[in-house]
Design a protein around this nucleic acid. Structure first.
Lengths: 149, 149
DNA sequence: GCAAAACTGGATGTCAAAGTCCAGTTTTGA
DNA sequence: TCAAAACTGGACTTTGACATCCAGTTTTGC
């Protein structure tokens, strides 16, 4: 249902949000999120083009979020790499339908709308803050030195 | 978001529901739904394996729905050709997570759940009955002879 | 200046989904 | 019986997503 690219982009952004506002290298993100490094760099390029992250070359460089985790929604991340396509015109291309969808495609679009809404309503900060019995982020969660036992 | 195969399967089933309980040939369905005939036959084979339709060879044969339109949901059609995959385990394969999903994948799965719910709640009969200003089915809607002007 | 750290962008490889083709089987009706 | 109507199943082609590789560019610190 969701492409690998979207899954990878979200993992990377969650990791970056956890480390924000520090810059992280592609290597660090790749290791923590288990995304193949060469492909991750492509995904990050997409996120950069979409205005979600900034990159900085050279020693000490890396990737950082443009917005704070509290301002960034899942939807923005998804739309940066692979825009969520709502159904706006009849896929059969029937001129007679114009802008109005037939009942089938209307229902399908409602399902897409519910996904869009769920993604729109969730910020990265909320994901990091969510209480859970397991480790909050899928591995690689940053724990400040002073907080470690 | 939804594959071509799912889109094609739904178009075919909506058409069959409209003609139910009559049998339709692959040719008729292909023409009305604008799905390439060779590929449509593959999709229909999937629907047959999934128990959504029955096929009958030979002169006068064709494809029919196994259930009535009122009993058949969109979800059943989708699951027959391409099961909707909920996220049940951590995609990173972390043993430490067990059955509990991290917040990111929990949110993604909630989005999938909302799609599943929307599809579960809609029957083919509801799609055919839905009032709309445009033609109810995307072209090829059956109008009984006695009702034509 | 130079070497190491990092990202960039183009070329390439791999694989599954989408789509096509066709010879074969079943069924009906004349 | 036989031809036409229909579906079946396997082989093949095409396309795009996923993934890799590498030479090139930018930046920093010594």
């Amino acid at each position: 249902m969701f492409s690998q690219t979207v899954e990878y982009a979200l993992r990377a952004v969650v990791f970056l949000a956890d480390r924000a506002p520090a810059a992280c290298t592609t290597d660090q993100i790749s290791t923590a999120t288990k995304v193949p490094k060469p492909y991750l760099s492509k995904v990050l390029q997409g996120l950069a083009r979409g205005g979600v992250v900034q990159t900085q070359r050279g020693v000490g460089g890396g990737v950082t979020l443009v917005k704070t985790p509290a301002e960034l929604t899942i939807l923005e991340v998804v739309n940066a790499v692979e825009p969520l396509q709502r159904i706006r015109t009849c896929p059969l291309g029937l001129a007679s339908h114009g802008v109005k969808l037939c009942p089938l495609h209307h229902r399908m679009d409602q399902a897409l709308a519910s996904v869009e809404r769920a993604f729109q309503e969730t910020t990265l900060a909320e994901i990091l803050a969510e209480p859970t019995t397991s480790v909050p982020l899928c591995d690689g969660r940053h724990v400040p030195i002073e907080a470690q036992g």
